[in-house]
């Protein structure tokens, strides 16, 4: 099996070396990133997320956080839920939690660079609010690097 994979690798690599000169000119534009899905496939999560956003918008931050935690019990690896929770923590003025929750979101973000960039911006906000201008700057740079 492993041998087969290795041969496949050679084949693919071979193609690459052949095709490389054709594209060797100007650096190609990066492929456009897919728009982040507004709703997840799980209806339960979608419902809780909507509820949490409505609560957060009208200032019921504790309820918003509770709904997000409920959603996280269903999908603990959903980086969007962690990010939303980080946003609520920021609104609550809990900057330390906002930062670490955004970092938690990053740990599940995989290759979703838009999501990561947003997390870094949240971290920048949190750091700035805590008076850590230097740290905020670093976080914004990290957000830029995600592209």
């Amino acid at each position: 099996m492993r041998t087969l994979l290795a041969f496949l690798a050679i084949a693919v690599a071979g193609c690459a070396t052949v095709r490389q000169p054709e594209l060797g000119g100007p650096a190609p534009l990066p492929a456009p990133l897919p728009e982040p899905a507004a709703r997840t496939e799980n209806l339960a999560i979608a419902g809780l997320l909507d509820g949490a956003r409505a609560d957060a918008a009208s200032g019921r931050l504790v309820n918003a956080a509770a709904s997000l935690e409920r959603a996280l019990r269903i999908e603990p690896r959903n980086p969007r839920l962690w990010q939303e929770l980080a946003r609520v923590r920021l609104k609550q003025g809990d900057y330390a939690q906002a930062e670490s929750t955004a970092a938690r979101s990053n740990s599940w973000a995989g290759s979703d660079s838009a999501l990561r960039a947003e997390n870094w911006r949240l971290i920048a906000h949190a750091r700035e609010a805590r008076g850590d201008a230097e740290g905020a700057k670093g976080a914004l740079e990290a957000a830029e690097r995600q592209r």
């Binding site: 290795a6 690599a13 071979g14």
Partner: peptide, 21 residues
């Protein structure tokens, strides 16, 4: 042969990196 493949792979990788940044 493996060493050669490895070299090719590295090359492919750097190409992919340039492509997708």
């Amino acid at each position: 042969l493996g060493a050669a493949v490895e070299g090719v792979k590295q090359q492919a990788k750097s190409w992919m990196q340039r492509l997708f940044g």
